[in-house]
Design a protein around this nucleic acid. Structure first.
Length: 261
DNA sequence: CTCCATGTTTAGAA
DNA sequence: CTTCTAAACATGGA
């Protein structure tokens, strides 16, 4: 479920283990995950380069190379990075492998192969081209208010639209709405000023806290909804049964008592 | 076997 | 132009 907190966790992992290591060779077990570049061209671009910096925008992870290029990774519906000793061999579902100097490798792992890897010259240009909104952690209350005022559909679908705010997916949108006490099917337009304020505060609180626990559901507070997804468990706040409905074409979990329509 | 799943893109309908 | 819905993508798990 790579949404903003998971991708931020991957970014920190990349910084910690792969930064300043030179790429010796590039292997692609599944070249179909590459977007806009061939494996040969990617190999030529990466070979001999070091990853010197990293950025994240929404669900995209960008690794800055000392050549000036940026390796752009999106994890799709599943996927992680793995750093391991070369002789250990790559993990299952490794789609792209960077063999690094020093005998340790970095793999982009994508079990369902819905993620994409590309190369960009400039992060800002990439973000514009992808039509991404501002990163969810960078959106202040004023900008949030202005943006939601122009929305028309359901508030859950609005939260998940990467063109409005980048980084929130299905699971965290449910968590944010639960914290704000808002029904996922409420129309964004119908929210009062106080409700918009609550939604904004919940968004920042949920995302920051999730980043702080490295997006590990086992480390999330017992009062959260997310670790209980998919099970028929009770609302952590009122004990009532959770409901499952559809919003924006995806499953929405919520508590009808704590999140009235 | 069937159904569902974290995301995105696209096509078509309204 | 916006919004909604469904399908497709590839694969694993229940």
């Amino acid at each position: 479920m790579p949404e903003l907190p998971e991708v931020e966790t991957e970014r920190r992992y990349l910084n910690r283990y792969a930064r300043h290591r030179r790429v010796v060779r590039v292997q692609a077990a599944h070249p179909d995950i590459l977007s806009g570049i061939s494996i040969q061209a990617l190999g030529r671009k990466l070979k001999g380069c070091c990853i010197e910096s990293s950025r994240r925008h929404g669900k995209y992870l960008l690794a800055g190379l000392d050549s000036g290029d940026w390796l752009v990774m999106h994890f799709g519906m599943s996927g992680t990075l793995a750093y391991y000793a070369h002789e250990q061999g790559p993990p299952d579902y490794a789609a792209l492998i960077l063999l690094l100097e020093g005998g340790r490798d970095l793999a982009y792992v994508s079990p369902r192969r819905l993620g994409r890897i590309s190369l960009a010259g400039d992060p800002e240009e990439f973000i514009r081209h992808q039509r991404l909104g501002p990163d969810a952690l960078d959106v202040g209350l004023t900008a949030f208010r202005e943006c939601i005022a122009a929305a028309r559909g359901a508030v859950k679908a609005w939260l998940m639209d990467q063109g409005h705010i980048a980084g929130i997916g299905n699971e965290y949108s449910d968590e944010i709405l639960f914290h704000a006490g808002l029904h996922p099917g409420r129309s964004a337009k119908s929210l009062t000023e106080a409700e918009v304020g609550r939604l904004h505060r919940s968004m920042l609180e949920v995302l920051r806290r999730a980043v702080a626990v490295a997006a590990n559901p086992e480390r999330m507070p017992a009062s959260w909804l997310l670790p209980r997804r998919g099970t028929d468990s009770a609302c952590p706040r009122c004990g009532g049964p959770l409901h499952k409905s559809k919003a924006g074409g995806r499953a929405a979990y919520y508590c009808p008592r704590c999140q009235p329509r």
